[in-house]
């Protein structure tokens, strides 16, 4: 399950160009920021603020890709595109799915952090 959520090759490549401590720090930062981004998306959706929605989805897409959470990144990208189009009325179910996908990524990344110790 965890292996599907996060691509190990991406993390290993990142580790090889930096080091384990740095990757762990990066994961911490991601785990700190991502809930805020998800909340921003939810509140932007409630306010029908497509630009704010788009920016938060964009950041989540980018950070997820950096840490190998490829499917989370893909889903974020879909939502980013919705934000870009200006119509986020149909985003609600996708945002729910994104939240669930994120939960899986959290446990996969925490597992990887344990391995790094």
């Amino acid at each position: 399950m965890a292996d599907n959520a996060v691509d190990r090759n991406t993390l290993e490549a990142l580790k090889s160009t930096t080091d384990g401590d740095f990757v762990s720090e990066l994961i911490d930062t991601f785990l700190d920021d991502a809930p805020t981004l998800l909340e921003t998306m939810a509140s932007a959706l409630a306010e029908n603020d497509s630009e704010r929605f788009r920016r938060a989805a964009h950041s989540l897409k980018s950070n997820a890709a950096t840490l190998g959470a490829l499917s989370l990144s893909e889903s974020s990208k879909e939502l980013e595109m919705m934000g870009k189009s200006g119509d986020i009325s149909a985003a609600s179910p996708k945002l729910d799915a994104l939240g669930k996908a994120y939960a899986k990524v959290v446990s996969a990344l925490e597992e990887y952090q344990d391995e790094l110790k």
Binding site: F22, E25, F30, D33, S59
Partner: peptide, 12 residues
């Protein structure tokens, strides 16, 4: 960059 993960990566 408004994104902290990117800032960390670049800074590194």
């Amino acid at each position: 960059d408004d994104n902290k993960v990117n800032r960390l990566l670049l800074a590194r």
